[in-house]
């Protein structure tokens, strides 16, 4: 999947709450509970299904954190793939409808 075309959205099978800068995510499908760190939380919160991942990295991660853009992009792609494998994020090369409220 070309990196410019990665769109991410939150799954409908989850409940999420932010606490002290970290996001707590509960997956009701398999009763797993995830705690995201601050950078992961920023990506998760920006997962509206319409904003390309590269744009999220550029406008959110690189603006808030002291990081090389290419490094941030590579890390974000790996993170998104892992969270997608757990059913927390939906990933597509086309815009998606975000299924849960932010």
């Amino acid at each position: 999947m070309p990196e410019d075309c990665i769109y991410i959205a939150r799954s409908s099978a989850i409940a999420a709450r932010a606490l002290a800068g970290e996001m707590m995510v509960m997956n009701s499908a398999d009763s797993t509970f995830f705690t995201l760190n601050e950078v992961a939380t920023a990506i998760f919160q920006a997962a509206d299904g319409h904003t390309p991942l590269r744009e999220i990295v550029r406008n959110q991660i690189c603006e808030q954190f002291d990081v090389d853009p290419e490094q941030a992009q590579a890390d974000a792609e790996q993170f998104v793939a892992e969270l997608s494998a757990h059913g927390i994020l939906l990933v597509s090369n086309q815009p998606l409808a975000a299924e849960t409220a932010r």
Partner: peptide
């Protein structure tokens, strides 16, 4: 003013 970057990561637990 930018915050210290940490690689995006998560901790997974079974409920």
């Amino acid at each position: 003013e930018k915050k210290l970057y940490q690689k995006p990561a998560f901790r997974c637990e079974q409920v």
